[in-house]
Design a protein around this nucleic acid. Structure first.
Length: 362
DNA sequence: AAAACGGGGCT
DNA sequence: AGCCCAGTTTT
């Protein structure tokens, strides 16, 4: 059965008006004070929504404040250097969010006079603005009754309406969008959408929801059945592949250290790092040979100073951190250079490599 | 439809 | 170690 056909049945026992009232009243009373809630500036809402993708509120707050003071409006972000934007994003992860955001903001400045579009189709065409972010901007900044379905909303609504569909499927997100279109308050779509998400963050949490404090407990079919922790249903994902590396802290005779910029696409695109030897392809004893081939440098390996294990969503880096010194040769590599330890800190580094900074820093 | 794409917090 | 989090893009 298609989403639209299922909606009437799923909402059959729900008092929509009462649900809206209970949710919105609770949100207006209990909502957290957050920097992006100071006003309805669409640019601020947009930046916050991008930062909040897969990222906790507490993590985002300092990044958001710094970002808004450095790039206060679309023009400021459009005019900035990409490396500077990445530096402001350093440590937040999912760095394509930053590059897509700047790409989209430049589009807004060039095509829409610096005003964030309030048209769903125009908004949805912007880089990095998917179904969720589009709905969030339209409802929160422009008071438009559009669904903004994220993981919180799916968890909350799966419990309230007892939906047992796998929330990792795209079709299930569409079902929840259709449900929200029926449920959403036309008077205050912003408070309704934010209320669903705030409820998911504060009350209807993944492991041990606080149902006794829930403002919509009376409307919740999962609570009625005592099955709130059984939902939502989500297919388990497979575990990450482990990849071993040697991370090299290479110093020259001037006390400078070798760093290189990663490729413009793919994992950690355009960020900087210390040279890494892929131990799946290179034997430990042939590392100097590999180094000479890749960088044109004869190096001598020194002491191993650390082991860093870094977990990504889809893989794990196991890195032995080893010191090395340049004996001879001249650097021959497109994207690598020697820098002083002080200058190094101006470059955006992934957290995995920041873990090795203490062995360099003066 | 599935995989790529970070990082941190909690259990 | 596994799961979760205010998702989107690419394949």
């Amino acid at each position: 059965m298609k989403p639209k056909e299922r909606v009437p049945f799923l909402l059959n026992h729900t008092n929509i008006d009462a649900f809206q009232d209970d949710l919105i009243s609770w949100f207006k009373k209990e909502q957290r004070v957050l920097p992006w809630r100071e006003n309805q500036d669409p640019y601020r809402v947009w930046v916050s929504e991008i930062m909040l993708q897969q990222t906790r509120v507490d993590t985002v707050i300092p990044y958001f404040n710094h970002f808004m003071s450095r790039f206060p409006n679309p023009k400021a972000l459009a005019d900035a250097d990409e490396q500077e934007v990445l530096k402001a994003w350093e440590g937040l992860g999912y760095y394509s969010r930053a590059r897509n955001l700047q790409n989209a903001v430049r589009e807004v400045v060039e095509s829409y006079g610096g005003v964030v579009p309030d048209d769903p189709d125009e908004l949805g065409k912007l880089k990095g603005v998917g179904p969720y972010t589009k709905g969030a901007i339209l409802s929160i900044a422009y008071d438009t009754p559009e669904p903004a379905v994220d993981g919180n909303v799916m968890r909350v609504l799966s419990r309230i309406l007892y939906v047992e569909d796998d929330i990792s499927k795209q079709s299930t997100r569409k079902l929840f969008e259709a449900l929200v279109r029926e449920l959403i308050s036309k008077e205050d779509p912003s408070a309704f959408n934010q209320g669903l998400m705030e409820l998911g963050a504060l009350i209807c949490t993944p492991k041990t929801p606080s149902c006794m404090l829930c403002p919509v407990q009376d409307h919740c079919r999962a609570f009625e059945k005592g099955a709130e922790t059984e939902l939502p249903i989500k297919a388990s994902k497979k575990k990450q592949k482990k990849i071993p590396y040697l991370l090299l802290l290479i110093e020259n005779d001037k006390g400078e250290v070798l760093i290189e910029q990663r490729p413009g696409e793919g994992l950690l695109a355009s960020l900087w790092q210390y040279p890494m030897v892929p131990l799946e392809d290179v034997d430990e004893e042939s590392v100097p040979v590999w180094m000479y081939g890749e960088y044109g440098l004869k190096v001598e390996l020194g002491e191993k100073v650390d082991h860093v294990r870094h977990v990504f969503s889809h893989l794990i880096w196991e890195m032995d951190v080893v010191r090395a010194v340049v004996k001879s040769g001249s650097l021959d590599h497109e994207r690598a250079k020697f820098v002083t330890p002080e200058a190094m800190l101006d470059y955006p580094f992934p957290v995995s490599h920041q873990k090795a900074h203490p062995y360099i820093s003066p």
